[in-house]
């Protein structure tokens, strides 16, 4: 008891931490989880491998003349698709955390209140980066030969990360509204499947019916895919990049305040 007393008493209060420090502490926590649950990287790896192999070897020849030509078209799209699907885990893990009561403690701490969320999103961005690197390496092994420079490839990845970070806020909203992480997963996937398939990731929309083509062309996922293809192919699709940045900003502006509202009022 005396030892315990000593440990409790002998201390000075540390200064109040700033929002950046606390966000980084939360990011550190989320990254530790990758160490303990490496399975969470499994989906990130498995998805792109499966899709790339399936589309390249099943449909590649028919869609683009040869599998190797199709790969040049497909890999930037697979990069977008993989990262976009990875954003779902942001909502799922947030929901898990909240249902376990861990967040009750965080919310009762005297910290900048969005920091648990911001920290989680920072860690998720690291996860998206890992996914991106896996896709690019896989592509290179299969025969993806980007004509753009290294800088172009990096710029493409960065653009994908920016979009994914903004998109994640939709899933934090879903993660805060729904009761179970299973439901979060289900709803999010249901939302994402049409958005990623009704895009130019797998096929050129030129042969689609007019109304669908219009929808596909204004789909931010298509714009992002076009921009990434261009960057990796050595040119800049300026209009698309601007539109992607606008879409990202709009997503953030709408969904981050909703997330914060729900987060503050969650019981």
């Amino acid at each position: 008891m005396t030892k315990m007393r000593a440990a409790l008493v002998e201390q000075e209060r540390p200064p109040c931490p700033n929002g950046i420090a606390t966000s980084l502490a939360f990011a550190w926590r989320a990254l530790l989880k990758i160490k303990y649950i490496p399975e969470q990287l499994l989906d990130v790896t498995f998805f792109p491998v499966m899709f790339t192999l399936m589309f390249t070897y099943l449909f590649g020849g028919a869609l683009a003349g040869s599998t190797s030509q199709y790969l040049q078209f497909l890999i930037p799209g697979i990069l977008v698709q993989t990262v976009v699907f990875t954003t779902v885990y942001t909502g799922v893990s947030l929901n898990d955390d909240i249902s376990k009561g861990t967040f009750d403690r965080f919310r009762s701490l005297p910290i900048w209140s969005p920091s648990p969320l911001v920290g989680a999103l920072i860690a998720d961005t690291v996860r998206y980066m890992i996914a991106s690197i896996i896709v690019i390496i896989l592509g290179l092994i299969l025969g993806f030969r980007p004509t753009g420079s290294i800088l172009g490839i990096i710029a493409g990845i960065v653009l994908v990360l920016i979009f994914a970070f903004s998109l994640s806020w939709i899933f934090t909203v879903i993660g805060l509204i729904l009761q179970t992480s299973k439901a979060v997963m289900g709803i999010s996937m249901t939302l994402l499947f049409p958005v990623t398939f009704a895009s130019n990731i797998f096929v050129d929309p030129a042969t689609m019916p007019g109304w669908l083509r219009t929808a596909v062309n204004i789909n931010p996922v298509s714009l992002l895919t076009t921009a990434v293809r261009a960057l990796m192919g050595g040119h800049t699709a300026f209009t698309e990049i601007v539109w992607v940045l606008i879409a990202s900003a709009v997503l953030m502006l709408i969904f981050s305040p909703i997330t914060m509202y729900l987060y503050r009022n969650k019981h």
Binding site: R29, L32, K33, Y36, I37, K100, G101, T102, R105
Partner: peptide, 11 residues
């Protein structure tokens, strides 16, 4: 210190 453990089980 909440009724249901608020520590992180994975860490």
């Amino acid at each position: 210190t909440g009724q249901f453990a608020s520590v992180d089980e994975d860490l």
